[in-house]
Design a protein around this nucleic acid. Sequence first.
DNA 1: CAAGAGATCATCT
DNA 2: GATGATCTCTTGA
Length: 205
Amino acid sequence: MRASQSADIHRALKLTRSFYEQSTIEVAKQLLGKYLVREHREGTTVGRIVETEAYVGPQDLACHAAKGRTARTEVMFGPAGHAYVYFIYGFYNMLNLVTEAKDFPAAVLIRAVEPVEGIHLMESRRRNGALRNLASGPGKLCQAFGIDRSLNGADLCGSVLFVEDHGEPVPKIRATSRIGVDYAGKWKDKPFRFVIRGSEFVSKI
DNA sequence: CAAGAGATCATCT
DNA sequence: GATGATCTCTTGA
């Protein structure tokens, strides 16, 4: 058990599978203000989620599953509450949390967190150690948290990678279009990106 | 500051 | 063989 846990006034509750089975938009919004926890042999890292994006099924042209069921997208077609981690641009991993019913391919991309615990460990894994730059982007946060494809398919109801509710009130949310999906036709402008208003730890305002 | 190039590889055509 | 749910560094105003 982590030292901070016993000191918390609100007990940290691990999100259950039923949380992830909700609609993807709902999950993306409700994840804001929750805490991403990564247990690693090098140590524990925790971050407050401040930015997410919803990828909402086979008809969403920005969603990888729009191209069909392949080895890569298989996890998204599986049951909710598992990690979908993929590698892109030859450098970076992206962390997604699979949502909704089995056989409906949808997920929430975790785009940014506010570093909370294990900051020294995050700094050692990142080039630029400035606090605001440690996990303010999907590639950065995977680096800072030691997340790679070995976690693809990991159960978020397990003990390696999960999300906690610390009883924090629902934050003020701002919705924008998603980043980097200009190829997605009429879907590129959908307001499926959600950020905590005023947070300085998001990837972009 | 804003804009642009380069890095580098798994995945799908 | 092309490209991408990105990041960092460099350049130039």
